[in-house]
Amino acid sequence: MGKVLAVIRMFRPFVAFLASAFVLSGCGNQPGGDALTQALTGMAGELVGRRGEAEPAQPLTRAMIEASGQPMMLAIAPSRGTQALLVPVARNRGVDVWATGDSATLSLRDGIFIASRGLGNDLMSAAAPSGAQITAGAGNTSRSYFTLDGEDRTQRADFACTLSRHAAAPIEIVERQFEVHEVKETCIGAENGFVNRYWIDRRGRIVQSLQWVGTDVGFLQLADLSN
């Protein structure tokens, strides 16, 4: 025990240095300077369980979707155990930007995910196949993903993908049944790989998909609620 204490004692300068680097900031009237305090308060909140995830106020119904009168998308991040409703906030050259209530955004071109913001390790930009290529359900595609590393430098990852078409059981999206088939996009890169899945209805629309964001976030399950 004495040795351990001695080690701890020896470590004090470093602990103190770190502590001094990150002691609480105080209060004041300057905006923006209190990110540290906010982060610490947030952590404290999580520790005592005050924050939790926003509980679903009530289960989502078709009636609610129709009453809202606007397109909506349901996104689920299985790796984080979170889900969110998104609405379109901008459209630029065929790309729709969908936003959550807390200002995270997903950008999709023709239903194909190409960028995220506000998720932490975001997909900054991507070269991806078109919706028509995916729904064709056969052939090869290529993808390039651009992300930021811990130093904020852009990292590029290229993937070669093959498409395959599969039969699938009908799926239900908020009280509505869809007869679908599934297209798998199997992508292999230098360091890792993933399989995107798309469920396509009789009219050739992607009604639900499971698309890869990156190594940290994993996959997002996306369902277009306007169909």
Binding site: G120, N121, L148
Partner: peptide
């Protein structure tokens, strides 16, 4: 922790 920077997304470009 390997997490990226947590921040709200920007407002998208308005065309």
């Amino acid at each position: 922790g390997g997490m990226g920077i947590q921040d709200t997304g920007p407002i998208p470009v308005r065309v």
